[in-house]
Amino acid sequence: MPRVDFDRDLMALQDELLLMGSMVEKAIAKAMDALKRRDLEAAREVVRDDDLIDQKQFDIEDHCINTMATQHPVAIDLRHIVTVLHISVELERMADYAEGIGKISIMMGDEPPLKPLIDIPRMADKTADMLRRSLDALVNRDVEAAHRVCGDDDEVDALYDQVYRELLTYMIEDAKNIRRATYLLWVAHDLERVADRATNIAERVIYMVTGKMAEVGASTY
């Protein structure tokens, strides 16, 4: 005997989460684009639109609490709802990092970046890819895919390490570079944290499917 309404409710909850995921992905892409193009208005929009993502997280949380209170989910249903709740928090934090990148753009003002942006956009592409694949793993209940997302965090950590060393040489070379190098370091750090959050999402997917809670690999940073 299927629980039609309840199943529909669970799907609606997941759809809301996927919508939030795409909002976060767009926020990161827009923040990076604003940084590259020195588009202060776009950066301000990223900061402003973070409120929409915060509201989405509240809505999802509210939905989860209502479903738990009224449907008394157990087993896979309970793990599903708890996972959605957890992932919504991860996504909200990711959006905060996008907002952070927007604020850095605003602080940089009209100043040109210290150096051409090469590795930082690569980090952004990689983290966006991890975010997308972690949510795909959720939809497909795919533990293997979730494990692969966790594995990719090392790549982002390596890129961050590279960016860090490079910026350090700029700082050593000329103290006048320190301020602008620090801005870029903050951006790289924000992206590194986004990748960590994508890994957390993947770990939650593994929990949802298997019922086993475990940290898969550890971030260098």
Binding site: M1, P2, A75, R79, T210, K212
Partner: peptide
């Protein structure tokens, strides 16, 4: 049993999808 049962039949029953 109520968070991660081992058998599909148990899961179907406790989640109300038993037929």
């Amino acid at each position: 049993i109520f968070t991660n049962p081992s058998h599909e039949q148990t899961e179907a029953y406790i989640t109300g999808r038993f037929s």
